[in-house]
């Protein structure tokens, strides 16, 4: 039986901003399909930059990214990649305040060939999934921050993407709202969806199969929790080993759920 390619694989990934600010200094990382990975580290360590590159909303200055075994440069249309392969959740939910919650969820489904009715039904289904069905016709300004973040997660799932990318999804929430969002990620993890979460929050990282720690633009440590590890490494080519002794197969990206 053939193994599926990793959801993501990066090699020597760098991102340098104007002024020679090196946000990423050569990141090798592979995320197996179906795995939940938490990327943690101090502010400014490059974790959000890494997520933006994986989401193809930013462009690396060096190295490569493959998604589903295919280099991003070979994807015929990055908009299609952003629309269908990844779903992105931001720290500040970024809902459009003028349109109802359900219309916000519909946004990624525009230009996918779905009829307005099909979009509406799918949005309703997703809002029910995140327990926000009651707010479908409300404006984002009429619901709480935690509820907005759940709506943002529903929006990220609109086109049933292979991977959910979340950038500090609980960063602006109170503890009760954080707990609900964590429950949501846990449920998505349990249904086998690939998730990459950038977070500072220990309780969010606890949802992950693997916690990747970054510092100064490099991955410094991977901590496989109860689940199989993510493969990781750095531009120096040194493969790292998980604390529990299981070997990481750097650059091979063959790990799935075991």
């Amino acid at each position: 039986m053939s193994e599926s390619p990793p959801a993501f694989e990066t090699h020597g990934l760098t991102r340098t901003f104007p002024g020679h600010v090196e946000a990423l200094r050569g990141v090798d990382l592979a995320v197996a399909s179906g795995q939940t990975v938490a990327i943690t580290g101090p502010s400014g360590c490059g974790k959000s930059t890494l997520l933006h590159l994986l989401a193809a909303i930013d462009v690396p200055t060096g190295g490569s990214i493959s998604a589903a075994g295919r280099p991003l440069g070979e994807w015929p249309d990055l908009s299609e990649y952003r629309r269908s392969y990844v779903g992105l959740v931001f720290q500040f939910h970024d809902l459009i305040p003028r349109i109802p919650v359900s219309a916000n969820v519909e946004l990624p489904m525009f230009w996918t060939g779905r009829s307005p009715r099909a979009r509406r039904e799918r949005a309703r289904e997703l809002l029910e999934l995140v327990d926000m069905g009651f707010a479908a016709h409300r404006l984002p300004t009429e619901i709480s921050g935690g509820e907005r973040q759940r709506v943002a997660i529903a929006r990220a799932l609109a086109n049933d993407p292979a991977v959910l990318l979340a950038d500090e999804p609980t960063g602006s929430l109170d503890s009760a709202s954080t707990e609900r969002v964590i429950d949501l990620f846990r449920a998505l993890r349990d249904e086998g969806r690939t998730i990459v979460i950038v977070t500072h929050a220990v309780e969010v990282a606890a949802v992950a199969d693997v916690v990747v720690r970054m510092r100064d633009g490099v991955v410094v440590e991977a901590d496989p929790q109860a689940r199989p590890p993510v493969v990781l490494g750095n531009a120096d080519g040194l493969d790292r080993q998980a604390p529990d002794g299981r070997a990481h197969r750097a650059r091979q990206g063959r790990l799935g759920r075991g």
Binding site: S79, R82, R83, S84, I96, P108, W111, R155
Partner: peptide
């Protein structure tokens, strides 16, 4: 501007 960035991030093309 942020809204346009969001639309791009959720898969809208530049021209759309």
């Amino acid at each position: 501007t942020r809204e346009f960035g969001l639309l791009r991030a959720v898969g809208w093309t530049r021209w759309r």
